[in-house]
Design a protein around this nucleic acid. Structure first.
Length: 854
DNA sequence: ATCCTCCCCTAC
DNA sequence: TAAGGTAGGGGAGGAT
């Protein structure tokens, strides 16, 4: 992402500032009992721009040492940490507190607050030239009175005193090497800094949020489309051609990014890995028994997965080659059989000339940001999959620009390549599955449009294990059954597939092998859990060490919970324990070896985001598991049953909702779409008629199972407006969540917290049930779409909202139930409005609309 | 029936 | 040496 923490990725809306302060207060209070040291007590930092250590790292350091990390500069921020800042930026800043990140590092290693004046980035005398001083700072430990404020001096003294009285604080390691095991206080941040999987997960989540934020802020205009209109040839084939989905994916992402700085390696077999890839053999610790571990591993997985990577990796267990994993390899290496996830030792055997290149996480982020921004110029109907991969609904865009998918994709890919220096591939189809499978064919550095008329034939020949969702375990079972291609699977009955793979997944397979995929693109996913786990370097001798680490991990997971501004009700501890027969020393350095896993969850009575509660729960859960600390090989903490997303400011809820409705109506006049394959009830992009035409279109692909409507929960309140209408009369506690018209601001402020929670929880059930019912309806063959609509309305006895007695209250409750309106609630309102208009009763609409505006 | 907990599987 | 994370979907089986 950008060099500046204030860019979209990090930005919090201005009105959240008060909230931030509150959270920070809660945070420091809550975390008190578990502070590692009080080193930075009373000190707060704000990180501006890219630094080393990174902002995340600095945040972690501050957390552990009682400091405060500000996401924004505030008046009371003690220091601004930066490496260098552009002139324009510092012009309006108080440069006397901008210091190098090295200060933090040096304070930690000296275990005291060191004189910060030597770390000042700018000597504030008129010059705007940054004076980068941190490179040659000599560690002068004694703060000098002339250079340090009295507060700082006090702090330093305080810290010195505290150290005397707290001899148990483990000293920072003297050796300059890295943190070896989880006992080391630096271990956690060092591990996370180097973990590719951690980065992949974090970046992925970051871009999901990024896209979602972009959508929230967007005004509905895409000026850059003009550019496309000029360049691209006009076409009319796109029109009335149903939904068009693109899947775009960078080619061997980490390698491509790494090659930008290493052009001499282009065209050669390259692998991104921690291993240097130089020596044939790696040193082994005493007690390592690769053969034995390999046997156990084979035994463990023999009944399940033996995907290619795992199976072939087993071979390299038997020698002394590197067990560092290949995160990404070039196509030249793949040609020799090298795969992602493979051990480097094996990769070197398969491909003797393979070049190892190191990770560059900052660069991945930067390239990914460019990719996202490039696509976002033209549309925000983006579902982020990961940092280098996304689905994009092109339907709108193509209709607007009046061009063909392939022309657009060509232009887009060229632009991405030009801006990032990295190739990407894209597939286009009429649903996500088709788009994704098209990308497979397109790779590397290509594009492919899977046309509707070719879908059937195309899928016939695809191996089932190529389908998304089919991994090593499923592949194994498929193999046993001798079901190889989608063509094979098409001849198997739904019932039989479900008998093998379960109800849901069986159904998915049954559809996927035909190229059918009804899952809509999801633009703003709501998080359901937060977790942090470490299954590397876990080697404890005593319980105390284990508990210290657990506390650190709690700090971590707590920080992540705070980051998404949610609370949770269920805390799960996951542990990996050395399998009884497994060697104590693992083959892989600091790896977990062969383990048995266990999870234990605790449901709390209240939602919490309190570090103390989390820590207490986790520690007691760990004690209850009664595992000898030296047998632990992995630890994870997960928080689930999250409460609703933090409510936005009232006004902005209303504004938000109305701007979205307005945007939608502007973009999508109520013109029917002729043919649409996807059932996409969540998408905001569909017109009502389009939605219904889709339903009848997809009639033929519905399975038997879907015909059974889920029974509706009658007693649940709901954020769904249709549900509210239906539940209104019979509900006793109606007044608990439906707020009177004239309610004042303070009451409003009280209400949402628990009511929203209740409503939202029920809403998802309600949505499901409605979805089921709609699906059930559409399985009937219908000749006339209008009849179908009327039939649904009649059978459901769906009341017209504008004709309800309490319509204003219903609307208010609905608006408070979520940040943005569900598309089909909006559709319902539009539908009801149209209904009234056609019945010439449009006067009924006026009051509710006026109310909503008010 | 439905929910809850403890898994397993998959994807990146 | 090496950095084996994270989130979501869903099934089995017991509790309610």
């Amino acid at each position: 992402m950008g060099k500046d923490r204030k860019d979209g990725f990090e930005e919090w809306d201005g009105y959240m500032n008060a909230k931030i302060t509150k959270l920070e207060e809660q945070f420091s209070k809550a975390s008190d009992p578990f502070r590692q040291t009080e080193l930075f007590k009373g000190i707060s930092i704000y990180v501006n721009g890219h630094t080393n250590p990174s902002a995340d790292e600095l945040k972690r350091i501050m957390m552990v040492h009682s400091g405060v990390f500000h996401h924004y500069e505030r008046s009371h921020t003690t220091f601004i940490i930066a490496s260098n800042l552009p002139d324009v930026k510092i012009r309006n800043m108080n440069t006397s507190k901008i210091i190098s990140p090295q200060w933090v590092v040096d304070c930690v290693s000296a275990q005291k607050i060191v004189d910060y004046s030597k770390y000042l980035l700018y000597t504030n005398q008129s010059t705007s030239q940054p004076k980068i001083t941190f490179q040659k700072v000599e560690k002068d430990d004694e703060p000098k009175a002339s250079n340090v404020s009295s507060i700082m001096r006090d702090l330093a003294e305080l810290n010195a005193k505290m150290k005397e009285t707290k001899p148990d604080i483990s000293p920072e390691p003297k050796q300059s090497g890295s943190a070896m095991t989880a006992v080391d206080p630096k271990f956690l941040s060092e591990f996370y800094n180097n973990s590719r999987l951690h980065h992949i997960a974090t970046l992925g989540a970051g871009f999901k949020k990024y896209v979602s934020d972009l959508r929230d802020k967007h005004n509905g205009d895409f000026p850059d489309r003009q550019k496309l209109k000029e360049i691209l040839p006009k076409s009319e084939i796109f029109v009335k051609n149903g939904q068009t989905v693109m899947h775009i994916d960078m080619d061997c992402f980490f390698v491509s990014v790494g090659l930008r700085k290493r052009p001499h390696l282009r065209g050669k077999p390259v692998a991104v890995t921690h291993s240097k890839g130089k020596s044939e053999h790696v040193p082994l610790k005493d007690g390592v028994n690769r053969e034995k571990e390999m046997d156990l591993f084979v035994k463990k997985i023999e009944k399940k997965a033996q995907d290619n990577v795992k199976a072939s990796n087993i071979n390299s267990f038997s020698d002394k080659s590197s067990l560092s994993e290949v995160a990404s390899c070039s196509y030249e290496a793949r040609a020799k059989g090298v795969k992602n996830g493979m051990f480097m030792g094996l990769a070197m055997k398969l491909c003797p000339g393979i070049q190892a290149i190191p990770y560059d996480f900052e660069a991945y982020k930067e390239v990914a940001e460019t990719l996202y921004n490039t696509v976002a110029q033209y549309t925000l109907n983006i579902e982020a999959v990961s940092c280098d991969e996304m689905f994009v609904d092109l339907t709108d865009l193509l209709n607007d620009v009046e061009t063909t998918p392939m022309d657009f994709v060509t232009a887009l890919r060229n632009e991405v390549k030009e801006k990032t220096g990295c190739p990407c591939s894209a597939g286009v189809g009429s649903n996500r599955l088709q788009a994704r499978m098209a990308t497979k064919k397109a790779k590397p550095d290509g594009q492919f449009h899977l046309l509707k008329e070719n879908v059937e034939e195309y899928f016939q020949n695809i191996a089932i294990k190529e389908l998304p969702g089919v991994g090593s375990s499923t592949s194994y079972t498929l193999n046993e059954l001798n079901w190889k291609t989608c063509g094979d699977l098409q001849t198997v009955s739904l019932y039989k597939i479900q008998a093998e793979f379960g109800k849901k997944f069986g159904e998915t397979l049954h559809q996927f092998c035909r190229g059918i995929d009804n899952r809509p693109l999801v633009y703003g996913q709501i998080r359901k859990s937060v977790s942090a786990e470490v299954n590397y370097g876990i080697r404890f001798k005593e319980n105390a060490e284990c508990e210290t680490f657990l506390k650190q991990l709690c700090v971590e997971v707590h920080a992540r919970l705070m980051d998404i501004k949610r609370k949770g009700k269920c805390i799960t501890l996951k542990v990996m324990v050395r399998a009884p027969e497994a060697p104590v020393e693992t083959s892989k350095f600091m790896g977990h070896g062969v383990c048995d896993n266990q999870t234990k969850s605790v449901s709390l009575t209240e939602f919490t985001c309190d570090l103390e509660v989390i820590t207490r729960t986790v520690l007691s859960t760990m004690r209850s598991l009664n595992i000898p600390p030296h047998e632990l090989r992995g630890i994870g903490i997960q928080i689930t049953k999250l409460n609703e997303e933090a409510p936005s400011k009232k006004d902005s809820v209303l504004m938000n909702m109305f701007s979205k409705v307005a945007e939608k109506q502007k973009d999508k006049p109520l013109k029917p779409k002729e043919t649409v394959v996807e059932v996409d009830k969540k998408s905001e992009e569909k017109s009502i008629k389009g939605m219904f035409s889709k339903m009848s279109e997809s009639t033929k692909i519905k399975s038997e199972e879907e015909k059974k409507p889920k029974t509706k929960k009658k007693n649940q309140p709901t954020g769904n407006i249709m549900g509210m209408l239906q539940n209104m009369p019979s509900r006793k506690r109606t007044s608990d969540y439906l707020v009177p018209d004239d309610i004042d601001e303070s009451v409003l402020a009280e209400l949402p917290e628990d009511i929203r929670r209740e409503i939202l929880q029920a809403r998802s059930d309600q949505q499901k049930s409605i979805e089921e019912r709609v699906k059930a309806r559409i399985t009937k063959s219908v000749k006339d779409k209008k009849e179908e609509i009327e039939e649904i309305q009649e059978e459901e006895q769906e009341p017209n909202i504008f004709l309800q007695k309490d319509n204003c209250r219903i609307l208010l409750a609905w608006m408070q139930s979520c940040d943005e309106p569900d598309s089909y609630d909006v559709e319902l309102i539009i539908k009801n409005a149209i209904d009234l208009i056609t019945r010439k009763e449009s006067h009924e609409i006026y009051d509710p609309i006026a109310f909503m505006c008010r």
